[in-house]
């Protein structure tokens, strides 16, 4: 795989005091969806600002397609674009179509190409008839679709998504995720900063975990769970009777589980084990318990990214 983004020893200090990034190194491969995750103040936004040439780093270097972004920012600007989350960065008193035409002008897109590309973008983002309505009449989801269309006006090879799911309902979250996937299928490289571990888990090939400007991890979720030595054992029971209730209340012989969901009818229990061997032993132990016909699921799998994220940042 070719690395389209190469970041080396990147540092950024705001006002000589606040160290936002501290020796960040990573690479992003062509056609990859790369997630940047971390708690508030981790340095995600600073990183994206540097990658999109909006911010000059204090130290270190960034190469995009082999070009140094500090030396040739204008060349880089032609191959990248940023998709902001929320309703900012758009002209509310213009229609969706006019917004696209305006931003195409900023990229000096030829008039002949412009009309065709606008139609393509409207179709791709499913703006439909709304493309001719004023942006101020758009819903949050429609604005996000337009944001994505706007980020594609110059047909960029690399698109940065800055918190793309902000204030979106479940329906639009699915749409934005499917748009991101189809962009990756078209060969675009996507860098996504997000708080949403489920988004990262669903769309990102690899993730970068940042904490206070430092890289904690860079790789896929399998590698992360391997690094953290975490394997999940999940048990789900339904139709809880007195016997099971007593078992759950007094604890099972194999240690204290994390109760994920519990109601009068069903319960979901999880154990985080430090190795596959331990997890398999635990699952065998659990399977030997007398569940009658109430056992719905007993599985051994990689933990979700959210659990690993919480484990890593020691949040309760």
């Amino acid at each position: 795989m070719n690395a389209v983004i190469k970041v080396e020893s990147l540092e950024h200090v705001y006002g000589g005091k606040v160290r936002a990034l501290d020796g960040v190194d990573f690479e992003v491969n062509e056609g990859e969806i790369f997630g940047v995750l971390g708690p508030n103040g981790a340095g995600k936004t600073t990183l994206v600002k540097i990658l999109s040439t909006l911010l000059v780093p204090t130290k270190g270097s960034v190469y995009i397609k082999g070009i140094d972004i500090l030396k040739n920012p204008r060349r880089i600007k032609r191959v990248i674009n940023v998709c902001f989350g929320g309703d900012q960065g758009l002209y509310w008193n213009l229609t969706g179509r006019e917004n696209l035409a305006y931003f195409m002008e900023l990229y000096r897109c030829p008039r002949k190409v412009r009309r065709r590309r606008i139609e393509e973008l409207i179709e791709f983002t499913k703006l439909g008839e709304k493309a001719d309505a004023l942006v101020r009449t758009y819903s949050a989801g429609m604005k996000q679709r337009l944001q994505i269309a706007r980020a594609l006006v110059n047909d960029p090879e690399i698109v940065y998504f800055d918190e793309p799911l902000v204030s979106l309902d479940v329906h639009f979250v699915e749409e934005v995720i499917s748009l991101m996937r189809s962009l990756a299928e078209r060969g675009k490289t996507l860098v996504v900063t997000t708080h949403s571990t489920s988004l990262a888990e669903r769309v990102c090939n690899r993730v970068l975990l940042l904490d206070r400007g430092r890289v904690l991890f860079c790789g896929n979720i399998y590698e992360l769970s391997k690094m953290l030595r975490k394997v999940l054992v999940r048990l789900k029971v339904h139709g809880i009777n007195k016997e099971i209730q007593a078992k759950l209340r007094n604890g099972l012989p194999c240690g204290r589980p994390r109760v994920k969901k519990r109601s009068a009818q069903e319960a979901e229990l999880q154990w985080l084990c430090s190795s596959w061997r331990e997890a398999l032993a635990l699952s065998q132990e659990l399977s030997r318990e007398n569940w009658d016909d109430n056992l719905e699921a007993l599985e051994v799998k990689l933990p979700p990214l959210k659990d690993l994220f919480l484990e890593m940042f020691h949040e309760p």
């Binding site: 999109s52 040439t53 909006l54 204008r74 600007k77 032609r78 990248i80 674009n81 940023v82 902001f84 900012q88 960065g89 758009l90 002209y91 509310w92 931003f103 900023l106 990229y107 000096r108 706007r150 110059n154």
Partner: peptide, 13 residues
């Protein structure tokens, strides 16, 4: 305020 200046800054114009 609208952050449209930011989007202008991202462009090569």
């Amino acid at each position: 305020i609208q952050r449209t200046l930011d989007t202008i800054m991202v462009s090569p114009s």
